[in-house]
Every structure is written in C-alpha cells, then in structure tokens.
Amino acid sequence: MENTFDKTATETIDLLEARLRRIEYAVSGQTGEAVGSTQNSTAPVAKRLADLEQSLHQLASKSRVIQDLLTLHARYPDLFQSINTDNLPTTLDTSSILSIVLASSSSYSSTASRLTSIKDVPVPPADLSAQLIELVPRIAQLEAVQVAQDAEIAELRARSAAVIQQWYTNDILRVGDAWADLEGRVAQGEQKIRRATLAKKLDESIV
C-alpha cells in the first residue's frame, strides 16, 4: 500500500510539473528545468511540491495574466470546475433549453468561422516583431517631442491671444475713445458758432 501511495504521489507531482512547464512555456516562451529530470525524480515529494509552488509564485509575479487568473480563481472557484450535464444549474425544462439553443444556433457557425479565420492568420515573422520592439524607444521619444510641441503651441496661442487683446485695448478702444472725444468737441464748437452767428444776425436786425 505504501509503495502504491508513493507511486501515486510521484505521478501526481509529475503531472503537476508538466502542467506548470506548459503554462510557463505558453506565458514566457521558455521553460525552466526539464520535466522528469533525475534530480526531481529522486527528491522527496514534499520538496518537489514546495519547488513547484515556488515556481508558480515566481511565474505569477512575472505575468499579469497569471495573477488575474489566480485572483479570478480565488473569487469565483466555480468557474474552474466542470459542470455535470445531468445536474445543470437551471430550472428550465428541456423544451425551453432547446428553444434557447436553437435561437442561438446561427451564432455557432459564425463564431466557428471567425475562430477558423483567426487560426489561419499567419504569425508575423520574428524579425518583424524584433524590429517593432526596437522601434518602441524611438516611438516614446517621438511622443515626448510631440508633447513638448503641443505645450509650446499652447503657450504660443496664449501669447498670441494676449497680444491681440493688448492691441485691441490699446489701439482700437483708445482710438475709438479719442474719436468720440473729438466728435464731442467738434459738436460743441459748431454749437458755439451757430450761437455766435444767430446773435450777430439779431444785432444786425435791431440796428
């Protein structure tokens, strides 16, 4: 019985390690220590389990996707469990479920065709991806230059608006006030002239 238990524990650890290596390869494109190595096979089960847990924590610390999955599993563990088809979480009868499935049947083919088209999309060459990655610092520099240019343009606009306001206040408004004052003085002069002319005519008529 003890040998059977040890064999089962060892096989379970091997399966866990294989899954962890597949996840590591899917996330980072590389794996650490090879699965089923001699050192891991001869190590105690507790140590191997502790090493796997440590590797999982290290992988989670490097990948935001793994962190989100672990958080989702902690909050909603039911999502990661398979549901028994004989015990569906619904109160609907079979005919109602069938009508819902048939109503959505058209979306199945479209979804399948989209997935097939995504699968047929060729993966970009590694050289092209490397070139795009090399362009990231230059793009960041261009963005910084653009931000500085936008700030300079905003400052120039503010200075232009201040100059226009000063020109309007000093030239347009003051000239308008000067013209209004001049027109008032001209009107007063015309009134004095008319009065003097009228007085002279009255004096001449009296004489």
Rank of each mutant, 00 (worst) to 15 (best):
residue 139 I to P: 00
residue 139 I to Q: 06
residue 140 A to W: 09
residue 140 A to L: 09
residue 140 A to D: 07
residue 140 A to N: 07
residue 141 Q to D: 03
residue 142 L to K: 06
residue 143 E to I: 06
residue 143 E to D: 14
residue 144 A to H: 06
residue 145 V to N: 12
residue 145 V to Q: 14
residue 145 V to W: 11
residue 145 V to S: 15
residue 145 V to I: 14
residue 145 V to E: 13
residue 147 V to I: 11
residue 148 A to E: 13
residue 149 Q to L: 15
residue 150 D to L: 06
residue 151 A to K: 07
residue 151 A to C: 02
residue 151 A to G: 04
residue 151 A to S: 05
residue 152 E to L: 15
residue 152 E to K: 12
residue 152 E to H: 15
residue 152 E to R: 13
residue 152 E to I: 15
residue 152 E to G: 02
residue 153 I to T: 10
residue 153 I to Q: 08
residue 153 I to D: 01
residue 154 A to I: 06
residue 154 A to P: 00
residue 154 A to K: 04
residue 156 L to M: 08
residue 157 R to M: 10
residue 158 A to R: 06
residue 158 A to K: 08
residue 158 A to W: 10
residue 159 R to P: 00
residue 159 R to Y: 03
residue 159 R to V: 11
residue 159 R to S: 14
residue 159 R to T: 01
residue 160 S to P: 00
residue 161 A to C: 10
residue 161 A to W: 02
residue 162 A to T: 06
residue 162 A to M: 03
residue 162 A to E: 04
residue 162 A to N: 01
residue 163 V to A: 01
residue 163 V to R: 05
residue 164 I to G: 02
residue 165 Q to E: 03
residue 165 Q to N: 07
residue 166 Q to C: 09
residue 166 Q to H: 07
residue 166 Q to K: 10
residue 166 Q to I: 11
residue 166 Q to P: 00
residue 167 W to F: 10
residue 167 W to K: 13
residue 168 Y to T: 15
residue 168 Y to P: 00
residue 169 T to Q: 09
residue 169 T to W: 11
residue 169 T to F: 02
residue 169 T to S: 06
residue 169 T to L: 08
residue 169 T to R: 08
residue 172 I to V: 12
residue 172 I to A: 09
residue 172 I to G: 01
residue 173 L to F: 01
residue 174 R to F: 05
residue 175 V to T: 15
residue 175 V to Q: 10
residue 175 V to L: 10
residue 176 G to A: 00
residue 176 G to C: 01
residue 177 D to T: 10
residue 177 D to G: 01
residue 177 D to Y: 12
residue 178 A to M: 12
residue 178 A to W: 12
residue 179 W to C: 10
residue 179 W to T: 12
residue 180 A to L: 10
residue 180 A to M: 05
residue 181 D to R: 07
residue 182 L to T: 03
residue 182 L to I: 09
residue 182 L to E: 04
residue 183 E to G: 07
residue 183 E to V: 11
residue 183 E to D: 14
residue 183 E to P: 00
residue 184 G to Q: 03
residue 184 G to T: 04
residue 184 G to N: 01
residue 184 G to E: 00
residue 185 R to P: 01
residue 185 R to C: 02
residue 185 R to H: 02
residue 185 R to A: 03
residue 186 V to F: 03
residue 186 V to M: 15
residue 187 A to E: 10
residue 187 A to K: 08
residue 187 A to V: 03
residue 188 Q to M: 10
residue 190 E to F: 09
residue 190 E to R: 07
residue 191 Q to G: 04
residue 191 Q to C: 03
residue 191 Q to T: 04
residue 192 K to E: 06
residue 194 R to N: 08
residue 194 R to E: 11
residue 194 R to K: 14
residue 194 R to L: 09
residue 194 R to M: 05
residue 195 R to I: 07
residue 196 A to L: 12
residue 196 A to N: 12
residue 197 T to H: 14
residue 197 T to I: 15
residue 197 T to S: 13
residue 197 T to F: 06
residue 199 A to I: 15
residue 199 A to T: 14
residue 200 K to R: 15
residue 200 K to T: 15
